[in-house]
């Protein structure tokens, strides 16, 4: 156990270039936030839609929703990243495919955000379906009896309640997005894990590097948790059992 500690390493310049290691980590944090937040936005939009579809009376829509969830749940995230990055462009028309492979700006970022967004959407859909299922049947019937169409009932009665009920499980999904965004290193997104590996190799101060990066992930997850807790307190459904605001 003779490790040479050097906490000043973060302020030292990297071996090739005029940045410091701290600059690398800040860039990494920026990409981690960008990928995670974009993915979360995509996941919420698709997840709510797919989750709602799975509770409709239409057999076909339920089946489509189920297929979506099973597809994204049963392939490892890393393999999905490779699928979107290397395989998906092959299915485009020739000129598009070439453009995507050669000229598309921020290709790694867009691929990672889409991939993580779709992956997370299947988990959000699962929660939303459970939330809709937990509503009393009377809410749905009463909405229809008032003359709302099914679409209006979902829009004005069912989803506004269901979404507020499932905020706690969505909170852990939001925290998972930050953790899962680390897989994006594999397709070359310059996010925190990528920078950690790069800094560890370049500086040979692995323990300091990983401690700093671990702390940054902690801060992300903790902030996500607090933001969701705030939203939960603000949007609590009156009259349901729950902690007082």
């Amino acid at each position: 156990m003779n490790y040479h500690w050097n906490w000043g390493i973060f302020l030292e310049p990297v071996k090739s270039g005029d940045e410091t290691y701290l600059d690398w980590l800040i860039t990494g944090l920026g990409w981690t936030l960008a990928v995670s937040l974009t993915a979360w936005l995509i996941a919420l939009c698709i997840g709510i839609a797919v989750g709602a579809l799975r509770t409709t009376p239409s057999r076909l829509l339920v089946m489509l929703g189920n297929a979506w969830v099973e597809l994204f749940r049963n392939i490892p995230l890393l393999v999905q990243m490779f699928l979107w990055f290397f395989v998906a462009p092959e299915f485009l028309p020739r000129e598009w495919s070439l453009w995507v492979k050669q000229d598309m700006p921020a290709k790694e970022f867009i691929t990672a955000a889409l991939c993580l967004g779709f992956f997370t959407s299947s988990r959000v859909a699962e929660q939303v379906r459970a939330g809709v299922g937990s509503l009393p049947r009377g809410q749905h019937d009463a909405a229809l009896a008032l003359g709302l169409t099914l679409g209006q009932a979902y829009r004005h009665v069912i989803l506004p309640q269901a979404l507020r009920i499932v905020i706690p499980p969505l909170t852990s999904e939001f925290m998972n997005v930050f953790k899962n965004s680390s897989v994006a290193f594999a397709i070359g997104v310059l996010e925190l894990t990528f920078q950690a590996r790069q800094m560890q190799e370049d500086s040979e101060q692995g323990i300091e590097t990983y401690l700093a990066v671990t702390l940054l992930y902690f801060i992300c997850a903790f902030t996500a948790n607090r933001v969701m807790a705030l939203i939960e307190a603000r949007t609590r459904v009156p009259g349901l059992i729950g902690k007082p605001a």
């Binding site: 490790y3 953790k179 950690a196």
Partner: peptide
């Protein structure tokens, strides 16, 4: 609360020290 990839990297780094 830590990403699994980071845990994998941590252990790969630390186990040889132990």
């Amino acid at each position: 609360s830590i990403p699994l990839v980071l845990v994998i990297l941590w252990f790969f780094l630390v186990i040889p020290f132990i």
